[in-house]
Structures are given as C-alpha cells and as structure tokens.
Amino acid sequence: MRHTAASLLFSAGVDLNEIRALLRHTRLATTADVYVDILDEVRRSTARSMDGILSRLYSSSVTEK
C-alpha cells in the first residue's frame, strides 16, 4: 500500500519531499529509490515537458540568427 500511495501521489504531481515526509522517511533517496515507481504516464509527461523546452530553445536560437 505504501508503494501504491507513493507512486500515485508522485504521478499526481506531489513533491517527492512531501511524499518522503508522509511516509516518514529520513532520506529522500529511500522514498525515490524504493517506494516511487515511475509510471508510464509520468514518463510521457516528462518527455512532453522536455520536448516543449527544447522546441522553445530551438525556436529562439533560429530567430536570433
């Protein structure tokens, strides 16, 4: 249940440090490495965010030339 709760909270955008506090871990690495499974939805969202960042950087570098 702790794994599920941590994974769902993380996928909902809850800060990893807040999840750490909720699970009462002293180390953030414990929460990140053991309890939070990165869901496919989170991976896709991260990839879309990076695509947007890189697209904006590319667009601004092309218009500056």
Rank of each mutant, 00 (worst) to 15 (best):
A47I: 15
R2T: 09
S7N: 06
L28Q: 06
I53V: 03
I53T: 07
M1D: 13
E18W: 00
R56S: 12
L57W: 02
T4Q: 02
T31C: 12
H25W: 01
H25P: 03
S45R: 14
R2H: 04
D40M: 06
T26S: 15
V42H: 05
S59Q: 14
R56V: 15
V14N: 03
G13L: 00
D51L: 15
T63G: 04
D51Y: 13
R20T: 13
S61M: 06
S11E: 12
S7H: 09
L23T: 00
L57N: 10
L16C: 02
I19A: 04
M50V: 10
R56Q: 13
R48S: 05
M1V: 08
D40W: 10
T30V: 11
V62Y: 13
Y58R: 15
Y35K: 08
A5S: 03
T63D: 13
S60H: 03
M1P: 01
A12I: 00
E18P: 00
L54D: 09
L22P: 01
K65T: 11
I38A: 05
G52V: 00
K65A: 05
V14A: 02
E18I: 14
T4K: 01
L9N: 08
A6V: 01
V36N: 09
I53L: 08
R43W: 00
T30H: 05
A6I: 02
I19C: 06
S45Q: 14
S59C: 07
A6R: 02
D40F: 11
T46E: 10
A21L: 10
L28A: 10
Y58W: 11
D33S: 11
S45F: 06
L54G: 05
M50C: 03
S45K: 13
T46P: 00
R2M: 06
V36I: 15
L54M: 14
I19L: 09
D37W: 06
I19V: 12
A47D: 00
A29H: 01
R27K: 15
L57Q: 13
R48N: 07
S45D: 12
Y58A: 12
R20M: 09
R56T: 15
L8W: 00
S55P: 00
N17M: 05
Y58S: 11
T31E: 14
L16Y: 11
H25F: 01
S59N: 13
R43H: 01
N17H: 03
A21T: 13
L8C: 04
A6L: 04
R44K: 07
L16S: 03
R20E: 08
V36H: 05
L28N: 06
D33P: 00
S55T: 14
H3D: 10
A21F: 04
R2I: 07
S7R: 05
I53F: 03
D37G: 12
T4N: 02
A12C: 07
S11C: 08
